[in-house]
Structure formats: structure tokens, C-alpha cells
Amino acid sequence: MISIDQIYIYPIKSMQGIPLTTANTGDGGFAHDRILMLSEPDGSFITARQYPELLKFKTSIVKNEVYVSLSSTKMIKFNLDEFSLSNEPTEIWGNHFTSQIAPIRVNQFFSKILHKDVQLRWVGQQLTRRTKRYPEVPVSFADGYPYLLLNKASFNYLQHQCPEQLDIRQFRGNIIIQGALPFAEDGWKTIKIGEVIFDIVKPCTRCVLTTIDANSAKPLANNEPLNTLRYFRADEQGQIDFGMNMIARNHGTISIHDKIEILERQVAKNYIKTFPPEIKTETQLCTITFEDKTIKGNNKQTILEQLEQHKIALPYSCRSGICGRCSVVLKKGEISALTQSAIKRNNRILACSCIPKGDITIESPKKG
């Protein structure tokens, strides 16, 4: 029997989740799921992609009382009623809407820990956010959809392939199921859990957040598990999927051990299956010249990783060859591309998805 194994909510975006035995579905997701998030003063969202230490924050919420702690000496309690009544401009992935700002003492608490000026925001009593694909469906501060389903068997398959020890919490799912075959969820279109019907709208495209250890908040080696996933879960555009985004048709209650009923199926998305490139037993050293700096490199790590190890920062968002922000111009040398999408026009390459074959020289696009 296919059933629910675990249920999670994440009251504050990018912070630790709370395991539940029962959850109530609402307009924008489970009750209290991603109703709070940190932002820049201008309202643009902040996540653990930029600040991995956010994953260490523990949260709890009882009615309107929220408790947040990083350690025994760094904790704060506040009430949602303390938030400003005015609706302030807010942005997530180019999606613009409004939210309410926390009182000064709360913002100062997080700003001091992150060493930058930030604000905590609440979705408010009424969700104002909508997305283009489903304008009738309210969304909280989740990246794009109210619910994320993960299949435990799919995770176990990935773990068997991946050289690094993984934790399913790295994928930040809301509903984790058991009893299905690996990636059976790819072919589901509509499911019923308890009294709630869910539509599976698309696979979830994964980013750098999955490469950060859920306990230590430190990145795993070799950009795992994205590096492994790209060999069997990447599409023609290089997007890497794991898990399924869902919306709920109705309100209701679901619980651990509830049966999953498949109401409608669909043709599964096609993924490009490739084999990992042959890795030589010995690391070959090389040099990486980026503009006016030359560093010692190797033929095993991505260009982005090696630059970061030498305190050379490139912009990025996904680290999986999707966003394109880490684009550089290859002036000299050769590289091995981990995905087809890593090589662009005019000698541009994605630093997150390319490994040097030998000495290389690269420049930022504005100079190239």
C-alpha cells in the first residue's frame, strides 16, 4: 500500500522544518507552512541559498506565537499580531505581491546574526500572492507551489547512486510517501489522500539548496546530490528534477499512514540518461586564471567550486546549470561540461557545470 510516511511544515522559509502527524490543507499550503520569510529591506526574498546558516534555525509556532532559536543564547519569541498592518511590496523569483513586516526588535535579531540589514515578513491574514500558471491558487512564501511530494523509494534510489550520505530533509518536502516504486510519482496526475484531492502540476526543479547538509548547514562535496541527479534526472534544458509540485483542490486533514489513491495518471516526463564521465584515479593539477588572478586548480571540481575555495566570488543562484548567473567566457583552454546546457554561445560557459581539463583562462561576460 502506498501511504504517507512523513509530513513537514516550514513556518519560516529556509529554516528547519517541523514534523507533524496530522496537517490541515489550506488555500496556500498546510497551515503555518512558509508563512514567514526573511527579506532584503526592499522586499526581495532571502533564503539558505545565500545564507546556509538559516538551516540551523529551529522554529515552532503555537497559534500566533512564534519561537525561533539558533542556540541557547540566541532565541526570540514574537506574536504575529505585532507585525505592521500595512502591506509592503515583496518579491520571490520575480513574482511581486505584498506582505507585512515584523517589529524592529525582531528584524534586529536576525540582522545581527546575519551581519546584514534584513526584515522578517509575514504573509498576513489574506494571501496576496498568485503565480502565472495558476492565478486562482493562493501561494505563501514557497518557491512556486503550495505542496511538495517526495517518494521515499526515489530518495533511496538516489542515495544508492550518490557517493555522499544524504538526508531526505535536504529536499524540503511537505509530504513524504512510502510503498511506491522509485519515481512512480512521475506518472501520477491526480491523487487522493484522506479526504483531500491533489493535482500534481509539475516536477520540482532542484537547486543548490539540496547540496547543503540539513544538520551542519555546510555544502556536501562535489555539488552532491545534484551531480548524481544530473545523470538520470536532467531534461533537455539541463533542469534537474526531484519530487513533485502539487496543489490541493479542497480543504481537509491528512495524517501519517493515510493511503495514497491514484485517481489519474499521465505520461511521465522524459529525462536524458547519461553515464558519468570517466574519472581518472589521480587528480591532475592545473591553473585557473580569472581576470587578474591565477589560482591552482584540478580536473575534478567545477570551476565555481574552485574559485570559491580561493575567495573569488561569482554570482549564482542554482549551481545546477539552470539560472545561468555563473556564466563566464572561456578565453583559453578546454573544459568538460557536466550538462549540454553548460556551453553557451560566444565561448560562454557555466562555471557551476564545467570542470577544467587543464590550464584555463576565463573572464566575466562584461569583459569577454
Score class of each variant (00 low, 15 high):
257 H>C: 02
304 L>T: 05
243 G>T: 09
222 N>W: 06
39 S>M: 08
253 T>D: 03
235 D>V: 09
186 D>M: 09
191 I>L: 13
325 R>W: 05
115 H>W: 13
103 P>N: 04
277 P>M: 05
319 R>Q: 11
347 N>A: 14
41 P>E: 08
343 I>R: 00
192 K>F: 08
103 P>Y: 01
101 I>K: 11
153 A>Q: 06
351 A>D: 01
91 E>H: 09
23 A>G: 13
66 V>H: 06
87 N>A: 10
340 Q>T: 10
112 K>I: 03
165 Q>Y: 14
222 N>P: 03
304 L>S: 03
20 L>W: 01
58 K>T: 15
111 S>F: 00
212 I>S: 01
105 R>G: 01
1 M>R: 11
246 M>L: 15
227 N>Y: 13
111 S>G: 01
295 I>A: 07
107 N>C: 04
88 E>I: 12
147 Y>C: 06
174 N>L: 00
177 I>T: 10
146 P>G: 09
99 S>D: 05
220 L>C: 02
7 I>H: 09
183 F>K: 04
148 L>D: 09
216 S>K: 09
283 T>R: 14
40 E>D: 10
164 E>A: 14
271 Y>C: 12
139 V>D: 07
236 E>G: 12
300 K>L: 02
11 P>D: 10
155 F>Q: 06
49 R>F: 06
6 Q>N: 10
180 A>H: 03
280 K>D: 14
114 L>S: 07
240 I>F: 13
126 Q>G: 07
327 S>C: 14
146 P>D: 08
87 N>V: 04
62 V>A: 15
71 S>L: 00
89 P>R: 05
246 M>V: 04
294 T>V: 05
283 T>K: 14
265 R>Y: 13
307 L>N: 01
207 C>N: 09
1 M>N: 11
349 I>V: 03
10 Y>R: 04
348 R>W: 01
129 R>E: 13
331 K>T: 12
161 Q>T: 08
33 D>L: 01
300 K>M: 02
314 L>E: 04
133 R>L: 15
112 K>S: 13
136 E>N: 15
251 H>A: 15
340 Q>R: 07
30 F>T: 00
66 V>Q: 02
238 G>W: 05
319 R>W: 01
117 D>T: 10
127 L>Q: 10
147 Y>L: 10
186 D>P: 05
350 L>S: 04
318 C>R: 05
356 P>A: 08
80 L>G: 07
55 L>Y: 04
151 N>R: 04
36 L>W: 02
255 S>R: 07
344 K>M: 13
50 Q>G: 08
328 V>P: 07
269 K>R: 15
367 K>A: 15
160 H>Q: 15
120 L>Q: 03
285 L>G: 06
226 L>R: 02
120 L>I: 00
228 T>A: 09
277 P>N: 00
29 G>D: 08
288 I>V: 02
26 G>H: 03
263 L>G: 08
164 E>Q: 14
188 W>Y: 12
239 Q>S: 13
345 R>N: 13
93 W>T: 06
31 A>M: 14
9 I>Q: 06
299 N>D: 14
236 E>C: 09
